[in-house]
Design a protein around this nucleic acid. Structure first.
Length: 407
DNA sequence: GTTTGAATAT
DNA sequence: AATATTCAAA
């Protein structure tokens, strides 16, 4: 560890500070020997190129820096060749714009040539080092963000709430409005990770946590070792790729927006919902019962309740024609209207009517994430089909208009 | 304190 | 339109 190149050293002593271009050029202009000049120029350019390599990874975040560096390199190189060719002194004027650009952030006294050591420090060293630190943090944010967004988008092109990606609006990739304490809270929330049997869950908020844990208690031994089917695995990979981080992000979003992430009722989810309803004898079942029957990890009472409310709204209207002969009715189910099971058009036989389905053992459905309604577990028919997978369940095909308020 | 259903908000 | 949240009642 004895010899550390100045650039890598953490030492901030002024003597390891690189020159500003201005100063460098000034020195250069004092050199009479052309070959000396050229070699100095080359060395400097080399340094710049090194720098360029370093920030290459961050070029997206620091386009301007890249540009400036690139510019500087080009100009210096040109200067070098010209120097060699003409055997004359470099023309300083050429660098003036460059200098201006480069130092645009720093109130650069026009008398930069008289810059004190300190200013040099600032121009180069501070800039470099401080920026490097910033780069690190910014690039981290970006990458996370990026992953999160891109993967998310792949999954769900429909989602439009609370989606930071969307809110970026037009072209500008804005930074997400992280709170200042991001780093810490992330860690804090780490501990709060939802106990969703091996899979990450996207929606659980604080409230959910509470709800889940309480309800989980009721199904007691429900640490039911969930069969981690290939489908499940795939799904979980597909839908929760950025792993913990996305989780954190989502939790952050949630925390910040104060609003839970929407649960998307995928057809599969809805199918389970209907199955549960069926087993419970119809829409008068309570949210809790339904949720328990549905066996969907991460699903909350509130969500079921909300869905149930919608369901009831859509099924309350009894078209006189169908009420009497529906299979549901035959089996004594009270499913609101005869419409309750019309969903078979979507789910095929699986949720059809009252018949034997009820007993069918459905594995617990694990939703790695619902952000995009990507849950497809167990429903072979829509495993990979673009059309079905990302859609949330839609009621519209079932009932025309929700009834008027009955306050 | 929990659950529910309805109303209301997003 | 679909889902979340709120609120009063059970």
């Amino acid at each position: 560890m004895g010899l550390v190149p100045p650039e890598l050293s953490l030492d901030f002593r002024p003597n390891v500070v690189p020159k500003t271009i201005t100063n460098f050029l000034r020195e250069l202009s004092l050199i009479g020997n052309v070959s000396d000049k050229v070699s100095k120029l080359d060395a400097f350019v080399k340094g710049l190129e090194e720098e360029m390599k370093k920030i290459d990874a961050f070029k997206r975040e620091l386009p301007l820096c890249m540009l400036l560096l690139n510019d500087a390199i080009l100009v210096l190189k040109e200067e070098s060749t010209q120097c060699m060719a003409r055997n004359v002194e470099p023309v300083l004027e050429e660098f003036i714009p460059l200098k201006n650009k480069e130092e645009d952030n720093h109130s650069e006294e026009d008398g930069s040539l008289i810059t004190t050591k300190k200013e040099e420090d600032c121009n180069n060293d501070c800039n470099n080092n401080k920026d490097k630190k910033n780069w690190m943090s910014s690039v981290q944010l970006w990458n996370i963000d990026d992953d999160y967004c891109s993967s998310d988008h792949k999954l769900d092109t429909k989602r439009n709430d609370e989606d930071p990606c969307k809110s970026r609006g037009g072209g500008g990739r804005g930074f997400m409005p992280f709170k200042a304490n991001l780093g810490f809270s992330v860690r804090k929330e780490d501990k709060q990770e939802v106990p969703v049997h091996g899979l990450t869950l996207s929606t659980p908020g604080i409230k959910n946590l509470k709800e889940e844990s309480s309800s989980t208690g009721s199904r007691s031994s429900c640490s039911r070792a969930v069969p981690f089917s290939a489908t499940n695995a795939r799904m979980s990979f597909r839908s929760a790729p950025p792993v913990g981080l996305s989780n954190h992000l989502q939790q952050h979003q949630q925390q910040q927006s104060g609003r839970k992430q929407r649960r998307c009722w995928s057809p599969e989810l809805h199918r389970r919902f209907l199955n549960a309803l069926q087993q419970l004898g119809g829409s008068q079942a309570t949210p809790k019962q339904i949720r328990e029957l549905m066996q969907v990890d991460g699903l909350t009472n509130d969500e079921v309740k909300s869905h149930l409310q919608k369901y009831r709204l859509h099924t309350r209207r009894l078209p006189a024609t169908t009420t009497t002969s529906t299979p549901a009715n035959q089996s004594g189910l009270v499913l609101g209207g005869g419409h309750a099971w019309m969903c078979q058009d979507q789910f095929g036989e699986s949720s059809k009517g009252s018949s034997s389905q009820s007993g069918s053992p459905q594995g617990p459905l694990q939703l790695a994430t619902n952000t995009g309604g990507t849950s497809t577990t167990g429903c072979e028919s829509m495993e990979d089909d673009e059309d079905a997978k990302s859609e949330c369940y839609s009621w519209k095909s079932h009932d025309q208009k929700p009834r008027k308020n009955n306050v």
